[in-house]
Nucleic acid binder design. Structure first.
Lengths: 117, 117
DNA sequence: GTAGTTGGTATACTCTGTGATACTGATTAC
DNA sequence: GTAATCAGTATCACAGAGTATACCAACTAC
């Protein structure tokens, strides 16, 4: 018998952790959030603001992020159809995580560089 | 001219963020940290504690995490060579991030499920 | 002897994420 | 007419992440 009482529900925690990573992971999610929070709303506008991203990737990521309710997509079906993206209040709920990760990333860089060994 | 003053050094922040994601990203890093923090020290021990992982993946991830100073690998060259892994104090510096991410992941699950729309 | 454990490596494979490029239909501008 | 912009989609290709399986050398147990 493994000692189940010591293990807590770690597997559940790891899952939650992996969910979070999945939601903001990959190469483009963060730059996209960044761009939208910077005021860019239109597809091409966002695209132009992120050097190196392709329409394909942007399209896919936006869809996924919409499914995860991180952004809202609004279509104005007027004469020339207009599409706007905005970050949701929900997107801002992990603002603290993002800040913490930024800090950690910066410290990590220092840490790795300063200890060549 | 784009409005540079509004942009802060977002690109730097995004990079730091991506560094962090890189360090703990992928399928196995978190489960491994979890396992080691749970008291597992030996290679096969860790391997057995993480269902589905292969020796190859575990080996690779451990190496990478050692390079990133998240874990320490100690070899005791006695009669049967003994190898032990432990998490470093440094590894614990993102304990808060991990906790925040666990919380966020749990909330996110609820949020997505509760709003079928 | 055989079988098992330890800490891995080697080889071959699949599968996913990402990239490159072209294209569409609607609209506007010239 | 041509060209450009909008919001994407389609198709192909490739590298890297991950999987499967076998194997190694040293040691222990029987």
């Amino acid at each position: 018998m493994a000692t189940p009482s010591l293990v807590r529900n770690q597997s559940e925690e790891v899952k939650a952790l992996q969910d979070t990573i999945y939601v903001i992971g990959g190469k483009w999610k963060l730059p996209i959030i960044n761009s939208i929070c910077n005021g860019n709303k239109r597809f091409r506008e966002i695209e132009r603001s992120i050097p190196g991203i392709t329409t394909r990737m942007l399209s896919r990521e936006l869809k996924e992020m919409e499914m995860n309710k991180l952004i809202k997509r609004t279509v104005y079906p007027d004469s020339p159809v207009l599409v706007e993206y905005e970050s949701t209040p929900y997107c801002k709920t992990f603002g603290n995580i993002i800040l913490a990760m930024i800090e950690w990333g910066k410290e990590h860089k220092k840490y790795i560089i300063e200890q060549p060994e």
